[in-house]
Simulated scan of single mutants.
Amino acid sequence: MNLSEHYNALFKKSSELILSGNYTIDSKINDESDRRFGITLLVRPNEEIKANIQAFLKELKKTEPHQYYYPNSDIHITIMSLISCYQGFSLDKFSMSEYVDIIEKSLVDVNEIQIDFQGVTLSPSAIMLQGFPTDNSLNVLRDKLRENFKSSSLPQSIDSRYIITAAHSTIMRFQKKLENPEKLIEVIEKFRNHNFGKFTAEKIELVFNDWYQREKNTVNMCDLYLR
C-alpha cells in the first residue's frame, strides 16, 4: 500500500465529513465505566518529536480547546494489537511468557524500526500524525507476528478490527461538538506536510492498555530491545 495515497485519501474523505457535520464524537473518553482493555505491541517517538507534536496541538487548542489531546506520555505507534480492547479483559487471562517467546521469534530478522513523521491527516473522529517507515522492517515484523501467532494456540485477535498497515499516531480525538470545523481544517492544512522529525525505535513495548493508551491505565509488561 502506498502510504501517501492512503493518508491523502483519508484526509480528503474525513475533511469532507467534518465540514458537513458528519464526524464522530467519542462519548466514552470520560466514561468511568469504560473497562475496555487489551494487549498491544507499540513504539514511542523521541522527546524532540513529542515537543514538535505539542507545538502543533497548541495551535489546535486555540481553535478547539475542549477536545481530547494526547499528552506526551500516551503518544505511540501501534505495531500490532495482539488482543483488541474489549470490555472486561484482564491480565489474569494473559500468559506473558508465551507471548514474549513468539514476539522474540518474530523479531529475529528485524534490526531496527525507523519512522519519519511527515504531516498530519484525519479520520472522522480524530487527528493523526502521518508516519512513514523508512524501510520494510515494520511490514516484515507485522507479517511475522501474524504468521507466528496464527499458527499458535494462544488467544489473539490480530487484524480482527482492521488490517493494520499504516504507521500513524493519533494525537487528538473529538470528544465534543466542534466549535469551528472550518478553522480546524485550516489549521490542519497548514501542517499537512510539516516535518515533525524522524526517530529510530530502540525498543518495542508490550503493554496492557485501555482504548486510549492512557498512562494511568497502562501496564508495561516487557521491553524488547532492537539494538
Score class of each variant (00 low, 15 high):
Asn8His: 09
Phe56Trp: 08
Gly131Ile: 03
Ala51Val: 08
Ala167Phe: 04
Val100Asn: 04
Gln54Asn: 11
Phe199Pro: 06
Met1Gly: 08
Ala126Phe: 05
Thr165Leu: 08
Asn30Trp: 10
Tyr23Asn: 11
Gly197Arg: 02
Lys62Ser: 14
Glu98His: 09
Phe94Cys: 00
Asp74Gln: 05
Ile164Ser: 12
Lys216Pro: 00
Glu182Ile: 15
Leu19Asn: 08
Asn180Glu: 15
Ala9Trp: 00
Ile18Asp: 15
Phe117Gly: 00
Lys13Glu: 15
Asn148Glu: 15
Tyr99Arg: 05
Ser73Asp: 14
Glu205Phe: 01
Gln175Arg: 11
Lys93Gln: 14
Ile53Asp: 03
Gly21Trp: 11
Met96Lys: 11
Val100Asp: 02
Tyr99Lys: 02
Tyr212Arg: 04
Gly21Pro: 09
Thr24Glu: 14
Ser157Ile: 01
Phe37Asn: 00
Tyr225Val: 12
Glu104Cys: 01
Met221His: 07
Leu107Glu: 13
Ile158Asn: 12
Thr78Asp: 06
Ser152Trp: 04
Ser125Trp: 01
Asp92Met: 01
Ile171Met: 03
Lys176Glu: 10
Ile204Pro: 00
Glu98Trp: 06
Ala126His: 05
Val110Phe: 02
Ser160Phe: 11
Leu122Ile: 01
Ala167Gln: 03
Asn180Gln: 13
Pro71Gln: 13
Arg146Pro: 00
Glu16Ser: 14
Arg146Gly: 07
Leu184Gln: 14
Leu122Asp: 03
Leu145Glu: 15
Ile113Asn: 00
Ile171Val: 08
Arg35Thr: 06
Thr78Trp: 11
Met80Cys: 14
His168Phe: 12
Lys28Phe: 04
Thr200Ser: 14
Pro45Ala: 15
Ile158Val: 12
Ser97Glu: 15
